[in-house]
Write a protein that binds this DNA or RNA. Structure first.
Length: 481
DNA sequence: GCTAATGATTGGTC
DNA sequence: GACCAATCATTAGC
């Protein structure tokens, strides 16, 4: 070091080359930084040198000099050193030192020996490091929006519990590490469950049910309320949410998903909890029967999810009928990347085959026998025998739990709205079939209704809710008798 | 300055 | 090793 100090002191205009001297200074600073007895004269020599501006462009020199100054309580001088140095590419260490210096200043001002994380954050906000230390600016800690969107799309559309291969693939797609992808999904699942539990306080008697406790997939359900799948609450903020009280089932003339149609940028959870009033759901909408229907009347239904009848023997909804609302169904299924089918494709076989939204999307399917339609609407009130239910996939299913739950959607009777609500089919009869493949399930609604309750048309509502999209679609389906 | 969201870490269980 | 709950640190939004 003595020779370096001599070189520094005696250096002529040409010898030794400046770059060499800077490099040597940096090496000395790096090697001697833990030796106060030596680093002190070194720093003094650098700062006193006419070449200090050049020397301080070396990250190690700047770091050691600023650190020594800070230790000597010369915080302002230390900051000037850091501000003045031009380290190519910046330096995390120098940024950290910059922050540490300002932490000390704040601690001194506040008379405390430590700062809380929030205080540190505020300190950093007030004293951002000079651009020369971080040329790229301070990076956001959060993943880019596109990355989070991609991860979220996968979680809600494919699975919240991706396999190792899927995680690796996502890591490649998002430029994240596999660990980051894993953490993201772990946090996603955890926070989904927490949110659901906050919104759905466990019923009193659920405490006695060991299955209702513990693992998140066994979500508590308030009695008489449809189970909310995780996607239902998959959103950081739903304005209007009253977390401290159960979301009421409000009597309404709208269908359970209607308000979703009215508000594509859905932001309100109360709507998903609405009952399915068997007749008033139509709200005066005109039900057009079969072929020869007049789509021109549909605006009367719009923008709510109108009833769209099927032609006899058809298992497809007429796209022209559902067009104004088709986004609903499309959205409901948009994130289902593993299946493609037409908007409104629903009825098939004996009963209803419903494409269930992937695991995390909380599709609710409600089916209501509405009665005999005619050209102007239903002529007989179905109120006496509403047959309504919600079939929703269990929430928070991890891999193993999915297996356990395959084909075992939570089936929840709609709330007792209207009071004479009758679930005419047993749970077993209504239980979905066992098929559960790639998170697209076939739901067999079981035996035909008793003849006294047979209605050729059902009202079907399919809805999907997630953070960024929510949807519901109600349409008529002819019962394939 | 407060709050809630977010990414990461830790220690435990299976 | 995968997953979990609890927790921490950070930071965006207000």
């Amino acid at each position: 070091m003595q020779s370096f100090l001599r070189l520094l002191r005696d250096r002529g205009d040409a010898e030794p080359p400046l770059a060499e001297l800077v490099t040597l200074a940096g090496r000395l600073c790096r090697d001697l930084q833990d030796d106060p007895a030596q680093v002190q004269p070194l720093v003094t020599a650098v700062l006193d040198s006419q070449l200090r501006l050049h020397l301080l462009d070396n990250a190690d020199v700047a770091l050691v000099c600023a650190r020594v100054l800070a230790q000597q309580e010369q915080h302002q001088a230390a900051c000037r050193v850091l501000e003045g140095c031009q380290v190519p590419g910046g330096s995390q260490e120098l940024v950290q030192l910059w922050n540490d210096i300002h932490y000390r200043l704040v601690m001194k001002r506040l008379g405390v020996v430590a700062l809380t994380p929030v205080q540190k954050f505020r300190c950093r906000k007030r004293n951002p490091p000079p651009p020369s230390l971080c040329p790229g600016g301070l990076k956001s800690r959060n993943f880019p929006r596109e990355v989070r969107q991609k991860l979220h799309d996968f979680a809600s559309g494919v699975s919240p519990n991706p396999s190792k291969v899927e995680r690796e693939h996502l890591a490649l797609e998002t430029s994240l590490t596999v660990e980051q992808v894993y953490n993201w999904f772990a946090n996603y699942r955890r926070r989904q469950r927490a949110l659901v539990q906050r919104l759905e306080p466990a019923p009193v008697d659920a405490a006695e049910d060991p299955k209702a406790k513990g693992r998140g997939s066994d979500l508590p359900r308030p009695a008489g309320q449809p189970h909310l799948g995780p996607g239902c609450v998959d959103g950081p903020r739903w304005p209007g949410t009253e977390e401290d009280e159960p979301v009421p089932f409000r009597e309404t003339t709208q269908g359970p998903w209607e308000s979703l149609a009215l508000a594509p940028d859905f932001s309100g959870d109360e709507t998903i909890m609405k009952p399915l009033p068997p007749r008033s759901l139509l709200g005066g909408e005109m039900y057009q029967e079969g072929p020869g229907h007049n789509p021109a009347t549909l605006p009367h239904i719009c923008p709510g999810p109108g009833l769209c009848p099927l032609t006899a023997g058809s298992d497809m909804l007429d796209p022209s009928l559902v067009a104004p609302e088709s986004w609903l169904m499309s959205l409901a299924l948009a994130s289902s990347k593993e299946v493609s089918f037409q908007t409104g494709q629903l009825v098939h076989g004996h009963g209803l085959d419903c494409m269930m939204h992937p695991a995390d999307a909380a599709v609710g399917v409600s089916i209501t026998a509405l009665g005999e339609p005619n050209s102007t609407g239903f002529t007989d009130s179905p109120v006496s025998n509403p047959q309504s239910m919600y079939l929703e996939e269990g929430a928070g299913t991890s891999g193993g739990q999915i297996e356990q739950r395959a084909g075992s959607f939570l089936l929840t009777q709609t709330p007792a709205q209207p009071p004479e609500f009758i679930l005419t089919q047993s749970l077993l009869e209504l239980a979905p079939g066992p098929s559960f493949s790639s998170r697209i399930s076939t739901m067999d609604l079981g035996q035909p209704l008793p003849s006294s309750q047979v209605r050729p048309y059902y009202q079907v509502t399919v809805g999907s809710l997630s953070t960024l999209q929510s949807s519901g679609h109600t349409f008529g389906v002819n019962r394939p008798d």
